[in-house]
Design a protein around this nucleic acid. Structure first.
Lengths: 148, 148
DNA sequence: GGGGGTGGGTTGTGTTTTCCAACTCGCTCG
DNA sequence: CGAGCGAGTTGGAAAACACAACCCACCCCC
């Protein structure tokens, strides 16, 4: 870190430390699609094998991924999302919505079907009032709020 | 890319190509907080100056950030989010919510005040039915849906 | 029992990013 | 004048990443 930096305490930064490296979120995407095998994740994401190994280990260490042995001799595992991992699907949903809107306005490459039967079109709302959550003007408070 | 890969077409991957590098989302966080100056973003994120320069240029090239000259001689700019950039706040919101819940369950470092007056506690819902959006079991469809 | 395939890695060797300190340039303020 | 700031640029080292190749233990098939 540069000497003059006083990075904010911030859950965004802390979360990105865990899932912000390249391939991590795409691996989580594959797991959310029900893909369970290492080689399949490699193929579907395009990640290098060694990097994917490292990322899955890191996600496991952070309670996002669970490895389940389905064979000893040879040792073989299936990969699953934990409950915390499934909650990261919210991140995938909004990333996809942004990309669909701004990069593929006419032809989203993938659609997700919501349990209600419709194609999923997500909205981030405030749990209290139910209105759109996105802040117009900001007033963050707490330890990480100072503008240094 | 490895030879055997057939990465999915995917708006998540495409969005991450633009904002998925380290520091990009934290720079966007600072802009969303109203921080406008290069040095301040450096201090508040902890990013290296050259990297931040590169990221801001890339975000600008992708229509997420706008540079506004507020002085010639010497050339000085303020950084702003575009409309597309402000939409990325949804991503920040859900990343922060995940981190608050799983990494700082007792003491979120920052709270955002929603326009309704309450501390923001976000929820990702389906625009059609209003219920939680997160998929239980998945059935993606479209060009990128194949499991290779 | 030999040959081919698969699943899940590990190793070796480059290539790219990223990091950080230090430097620049042109103001502005005291 | 000298200090300081804003916004970078540069150079060299460290870390991350990429890719092909290898490995091992099975499994199936002939």
């Amino acid at each position: 870190m540069p000497k003059d930096a006083h990075p904010r305490e911030c859950s965004i930064a802390d979360t990105l430390d865990i899932v912000g490296e390249r391939w991590s979120l795409l691996a989580i995407r594959e797991l959310s699609y029900g893909v369970r095998r290492f080689d399949q994740i490699v193929r579907n994401t395009g990640a290098a094998r060694d990097i994917l190994t490292a990322r899955l280990r890191k996600l496991e260490a952070n309670g996002i991924v669970r490895r389940e042995r389905y064979s000893d001799h040879p040792v073989r595992h299936e990969y699953h999302l934990t409950a915390a991992g499934r909650e990261l699907c919210d991140v995938l949903i909004v990333l996809m919505a942004w990309g669909d809107r701004h990069l593929h306005p006419d032809d989203p490459p993938v659609r997700w079907r919501h349990s209600c039967g419709e194609t999923l079109n997500p909205l981030v709302v405030c749990r209290q009032c139910g209105n759109e959550a996105r802040p117009g003007a900001h007033s963050p408070t707490g330890r990480g709020a100072l503008t240094g």
